[in-house]
Design a protein around this nucleic acid. Structure first.
Lengths: 116, 116
DNA sequence: TGTCAGTATCGACATCTATCGACATCTATC
DNA sequence: GATAGATGTCGATAGATGTCGATACTGACA
């Protein structure tokens, strides 16, 4: 996933055909973003003040139950998109640094866009 | 998906919490990329000469059967990532223009990255 | 018109996934 | 230590998904 050129100008995805090994981990990250609830969780965390949000912030804003939120957070964590830290009674989630989302963004950027 | 500011400087995802309606279509696109085979298909199409590849180019490069490739192509097409055109006996797939991948890339780009 | 190659669809199957309720675990506070 | 609140885990279940073999469709060509 975090290969040497991932944050450079051109998209590895469009530069050459990706092999099996390269795609499996990338696909897992995209798959994690491929659920509306998880996408909203990432958005809420990324846009929350301080760049982090506790689980209580999340459960309040969704129509699904707390165990489900917890499950989705686990998926996002395993995909390398979020990290968590316990402070007192609450667990706070924030984007992983170096940012995986930025890496995925660069992956999708295409030559036409870079040139134009 | 293709809202007015999607290709601007900052990431909508990190600017404000995304709502249910906004995320559903985005999630579908990410979900489509969330399979290793599909990610490789997109990569192969994007990197193929002329920016397009026929199904026969794809079936040759994968270990899964032709019906499965056809199924994945349908998913990518429905997600708005690829388009197809029949020429003689062959069906050619290429990236959709305006490019959906670029839109997703912009979506994931984060303020920190833009500022830095 | 008949045949062939390329591609899509269909039905079936095994596996994965999202969700829930119930319960366990952790921390703070009394 | 006992209690309460916040969070994670477990087991169950319904639905989605990836894959395949068989088959139908489409265009080219004899």
């Amino acid at each position: 996933m975090d290969g040497p050129n991932l944050l450079e100008c051109c998209s590895p995805l469009a530069r050459e055909p990706l092999g099996e090994q390269q795609t499996s981990e990338m696909a897992r990250a995209f798959k994690a973003l491929g659920d509306p609830v998880r996408l909203r969780i990432v958005s809420l965390v990324a846009s929350h003040e301080g760049g982090e949000a506790c689980v209580c912030d999340l459960t309040a804003g969704f129509e699904v139950g707390q165990p489900t939120i917890s499950h989705h957070l686990k998926v996002l964590k395993q995909a390398g998109l979020l990290t968590s830290e316990r402070r007192a009674s609450w667990v706070y989630y924030r984007r992983i640094v170096p940012d995986r989302l930025a890496g995925l963004s660069a992956l999708l950027r295409l030559p036409a866009e870079v040139a134009g």
